[in-house]
Computed example of a mutant assay.
Amino acid sequence: MRRSLVATAAVAALALTGCTTGGNSGSSPTPTSGVNNAAAVEYMNKVCSAASEFAKIEKTAPKVDPADTSKLKAEMAAYMGQLADAFAKSAEGLKNVGPSPVAGGEEAVNKMAETFTSLGTVFTEAKTKIEQANANDATGGIQAAGEAIAKLSELADPLRDLQGVPELQKATQTAEKCQEMQRLNVTPTS
């Protein structure tokens, strides 16, 4: 059970690596309708820079001896804390990107911030449950980590909220920070 949970954490971290596809779901972007493309790209640079905090986190699940339950618990709590902090930083950054040059952009970015905030809360709660669990119980609190990691599916595409704003979605394709965010997602080690 402990080993499979660590493996689950690694798989979830792997899922994080594929979650910054730039928001393009295969449909061709619609042409901009008189919107200053440079302003949209500049705005998306700010959005992707803020959102990239989650992509900078360590993507390798903790490597510990599953027989050492107290160390496993401590390492998983630390890992949950790292995830919580990264999502909180991204949420805060998204709240501060400023006004969008495109109608609907601010609403989409605010929705992204809400998603990051929610995930940060989930990981904070998981960390607390792990820390409060009985160290002699091999699975104590670790289930909370698995449940939190399962919530990462909500972030399968961190820019999905831009789907209703084609001008910004198109801007992600050329915005340097959006491209950097994609490059941050290297394949995790086992």
Results as ranks from 00 to 15, higher is better:
A10D: 09
V11N: 09
V11H: 04
A12M: 15
L14W: 05
A15H: 08
T17Q: 09
G18S: 12
G22D: 12
G22P: 10
N24K: 08
N24Q: 11
N24L: 06
S25T: 13
G26W: 02
G26L: 00
T30I: 03
P31W: 00
T32R: 09
V35E: 08
N37K: 09
A39I: 05
V41R: 06
V41I: 11
V41P: 03
V41H: 02
N45L: 12
K46Q: 07
K46E: 02
V47K: 04
V47M: 04
C48W: 14
S49E: 15
S49F: 11
S49R: 12
S49G: 15
A50L: 01
A50D: 04
A51W: 12
S52P: 05
A55F: 05
E58D: 15
K59R: 08
K59P: 00
A61L: 11
K63G: 10
V64G: 03
V64R: 08
V64Q: 11
D65E: 12
P66W: 06
P66G: 07
T69D: 08
K71G: 01
K71I: 00
K73Y: 00
A74S: 07
M76G: 03
M76W: 06
M76Y: 08
A77T: 04
Y79W: 14
Y79D: 10
G81D: 10
L83Y: 15
A84V: 03
A86W: 05
A86C: 01
S90V: 02
S90G: 14
S90R: 02
A91M: 11
A91L: 05
A91S: 15
A91Q: 15
E92N: 13
E92G: 05
G93D: 04
G93N: 03
L94Y: 03
K95R: 14
K95F: 00
V97C: 01
G98L: 10
P99G: 10
S100L: 02
S100I: 07
P101E: 01
A103F: 04
G104N: 07
G104C: 09
G104V: 14
G105R: 13
E106T: 15
